[in-house]
Every structure is written in structure tokens, then in C-alpha cells.
């Protein structure tokens, strides 16, 4: 019996192919200083970094400046990107988040000690594919969370607010916020099984 190809399957293959394209662009930047590959990453990710910073309270001019700086960091640190440990989107998120703490909060952000092994010169293909597929799966799971739960997860990541500050801002009881976030995480875990 042949499996019917559903719309979700097609969407999922596309997103997955996109993830793998971004990984290939990173390798081109690292190995060949490829500006065309950088331009592709820039056109996709720079506007997203800018949007993230603006939702965290930066004005448009500051967000533009910091987004450019984040993308320049991606070029300079391309040799540290490890596709067996993170998707390109996740890696860019961590760079943008750290710059946000530097610039908007003017605080240091202590990072965990690096693992003794850095990115391999040739990361394992199977590990890379598995990680990229998982990232794509997580993206879909997030998109299908109930609205009320998704909104709170977005606020927690984007607005630089603690749960109590979210409670003040939304007027929701703190307990409700905590339990919605917990439910959202349970759903994500279930979807990733």
C-alpha cells in the first residue's frame, strides 16, 4: 500500500529542506567566505532578528543596528556553528538574545563552560539530519499550540519579562500563567516523542 502524501507532509519536507539549505549556507560562509550564501541567510534571518528585538522593546533604529551586528557575528563565528547541536535559527536566536542582554539591559550574561569537544570539522551527517528534522518538528508543534498557551510562550521569550511581570501586564493570575506554560511544554514534549 502506498502512503498518501498529505499537505502536512509536503509542508514538513519544505521546512526541513529549508533547514538543510541554511546549514549548507553556513558551510559556504565558513569554508569560502561566500557572500551570496550570506545574502540568502541575511534576507531570511535579519528581518526576524529585527522583529525579535523590536518586540523586546528596542526602537526600529536600534533594532536595525543590533540585527546587522548579530548577522556580522554570524559571519565571524561561522566556524563555531555546529549543525549536529543546533539549527541555524536556534544558533542565531542565542546570538540575538545575548546581544539583547548586552544592549538593552547592559548586563553580562554568564555562559556555561564550553564542552571539551568543539564542532567537528565534518559533523556527523546522521546527527545533523536528525537535529535539523527535530527542529522542524518543534516548529510545527509550536504553531499548533492552543492560542492562549502560544501567546504566553512568545511573551516569555520575546518581551524580556519574568512570569510575574507578564502577570502584571496581562492581568492574568500568576498561577494561570505558570500552568499554561507548563501545559504548553507538556504538549511540545509529547509532540517530540
Amino acid at each position: 500500500m502506498t502512503k498518501r502524501v498529505t499537505e502536512t507532509d509536503v509542508a514538513s519536507t519544505d521546512a526541513n529542506k529549508e533547514n538543510e539549505d541554511w546549514v549548507a549556507c553556513m558551510a559556504l560562509i565558513r569554508d569560502a567566505g561566500d557572500e551570496a550564501a550570506f545574502a540568502r541567510l541575511f534576507s531570511h534571518f535579519a528581518p526576524r532578528v529585527k522583529g525579535f528585538l523590536m518586540r523586546s522593546g528596542a526602537d526600529a533604529a536600534l533594532a536595525e543596528e543590533v540585527a546587522q551586528d548579530v548577522m556580522a557575528t554570524l559571519w565571524r563565528k561561522s566556524h563555531l556553528f555546529d549543525p549536529a547541536r543546533a539549527s541555524v535559527a536556534t544558533w542565531i536566536f542565542t546570538i540575538a538574545r545575548n546581544r539583547r542582554i548586552d544592549v538593552l539591559r547592559r548586563a553580562r550574561r554568564p555562559e556555561p563552560e564550553d564542552l571539551p569537544w568543539g564542532p567537528e570539522p565534518e559533523p556527523d551527517q546522521a546527527d545533523t539530519m536528525a537535529l535539523q528534522q527535530e527542529s522542524e518538528q518543534l516548529g510545527r508543534a509550536l504553531a499548533t499550540l492552543p492560542e492562549k498557551q502560544r501567546v504566553l510562550i512568545e511573551k516569555a521569550y520575546f518581551s524580556d519579562l519574568s512570569h510575574s511581570e507578564i502577570a502584571e501586564q496581562t492581568g492574568l493570575p500568576l498561577g494561570t500563567i505558570k500552568s499554561r506554560i507548563r501545559l504548553a511544554l507538556d504538549r511540545l514534549r509529547h509532540a517530540m516523542k
Binding site: 557572500e35 550570506f38 545574502a39 541575511f42 534576507s43 534571518f45 535579519a46 528581518p47 526576524r48 532578528v49 529585527k50 522583529g51 525579535f52 523590536m54 518586540r55 526600529a60 533594532a63 536595525e64 540585527a67 546587522q68 548577522m71 556580522a72 543546533a86 539549527s87 535559527a89 536556534t90 544558533w91 542565531i92 536566536f93 542565542t94 540575538a96 538574545r97 527535530e134 527542529s135 518543534l138 516548529g139 509550536l142 510562550i153 512568545e154 521569550y157 520575546f158 511540545l188
Partner: peptide
């Protein structure tokens, strides 16, 4: 961190016209 990466996909704001050139 992967949740943060996935959420990043949802919040695009256009960059300045010379954004790429300025970054290069």
C-alpha cells in the same frame, strides 16, 4: 533554545534597504 529558534520564525520586520551592504 530550540523553542527560541522556532519562535524567531514568526516575527519579521523589514530591514533598511542598505542593511545588507552596511552589514558587509
Amino acid at each position: 533554545d530550540a523553542v527560541g529558534g522556532a519562535l524567531l520564525e514568526q516575527a519579521a520586520v523589514p530591514m533598511a534597504q542598505d542593511g545588507l551592504a552596511a552589514t558587509m
